[in-house]
């Protein structure tokens, strides 16, 4: 039971990272109806920028604080980068076929990721997370502090996003644009600003996710692969549901960790490394029952 609960908490921790990434995908999708494949690059950018900032800030600040400030700064830097890339390379494509735009985001991903990877150097870069992989005892379970931090971050950022979308005028404008772009435009909403903001938000969220996921072993070149695991999470939750993204992300994390811990004992015939593909299997199962994910809006079709 202890082992089960510990795996569950690990899963919720990792799942929080997937949730952040999934939120980014969903925010962009809601605003622009495009799945942005540039998220892996932003995730890596956030991690690399953090790894450079933390030691620089570490001289003037207490450890711990410097890490969180660096993550915040990296999120802002990445958000700005996303904003610029959206404005220059994606905005001109508004109204074009969504898959053409998706391929453009993919080209952006290749280019940005290659540049950023150049700054990782020949080793894994330490991220400067103050607690490393230390564990603490919570109710008799040993829990890694970093997993708690991940959960806390997603709770905090999720709450802030909720306030932003529900309580601020611009959040309302974004919701309006997501609902009906033309109607929003006639009401004076700057749809261009909505597009830009959605990319900036998604870039910032991915940057935080990248920094958090590097707390275990530092930033390495293959880190971006994790962003692809957020894809089943968004489908699971439903492409246009922010709450669904969080729940989908957490579910994917938990399933991955539970399968990783127990599959060898209960279903060894599946082969090794099943945990890495378990999220996709879960996604297929859910879609068989609910073709628009758990919380997605079924598309209304008219002739």
């Amino acid at each position: 039971m202890t082992e089960f609960l510990e795996a569950l908490i690990r899963g919720l921790g990792i799942g929080s990272v997937y949730a952040l990434l999934a939120l980014g995908f969903v925010i962009i999708y809601k605003a622009t109806r495009v799945v942005s494949f540039a998220q892996p690059a932003f995730m890596l950018t956030g991690a690399v920028v953090t790894s450079y900032l933390t030691p620089a800030l570490g001289f003037v600040l207490v450890t711990g604080l410097s890490f969180f400030l660096s993550v915040a700064a990296a999120a802002i830097v990445t958000a700005l980068l996303a904003l610029v890339l959206e404005r220059v390379l994606v905005r001109p494509m508004v109204g074009r076929a969504v898959f053409v735009i998706a391929i453009i985001t993919l080209g952006i991903d290749i280019a940005v990721r290659t540049v950023v990877t150049g700054y990782i150097g020949i080793g894994a870069r330490p991220i400067g997370f103050p607690w490393g992989i230390e564990t603490i005892q919570v109710l008799g379970l040993s829990v890694q502090i970093r997993h708690l931090v991940m959960m806390g971050t997603v709770a905090l950022l999720g709450g802030l996003l909720y306030l932003f979308f529900q309580r601020t005028p611009f959040g309302l404008a974004m919701r309006a644009a997501a609902f009906d772009q033309e109607a929003a435009m006639t009401q004076g909403v700057s749809v261009g600003a909505v597009f830009g903001t959605s990319w900036a938000l998604a870039g910032g969220l991915a940057a935080v996710a990248g920094a958090l996921v590097s707390t275990g072993a530092g930033v390495d070149r293959q880190l971006w692969v994790i962003a692809l695991i957020a894809l089943p999470a968004i489908i699971l939750g439903g492409l246009d549901s922010l709450g669904g993204a969080v729940i989908g992300g957490l579910a994917v994390g938990v399933v991955e960790q539970l399968v990783g811990s127990y599959q060898r004992d209960y279903a060894p015939w599946l082969g090794d490394n099943v945990a890495t593909v378990a999220p996709y299997a879960l996604m297929l199962l859910v879609l068989l029952v609910r073709p628009y994910g758990l919380f997605g809006t079924p598309e209304v079709r008219r002739v």
Binding site: A124, S261, A275
Partner: peptide, 29 residues
């Protein structure tokens, strides 16, 4: 499999079997 977050199975297998020597054939991360 490669990836920092994909090692849960390996770790729990090591802790459970508790062998005297573990030969590692993975990457640095």
């Amino acid at each position: 499999a490669p990836g920092a977050e994909a090692q849960a199975g390996a770790v729990s297998a090591i802790v459970r079997a508790d062998p005297d020597v573990v030969i590692l054939g993975v990457g640095p991360t």
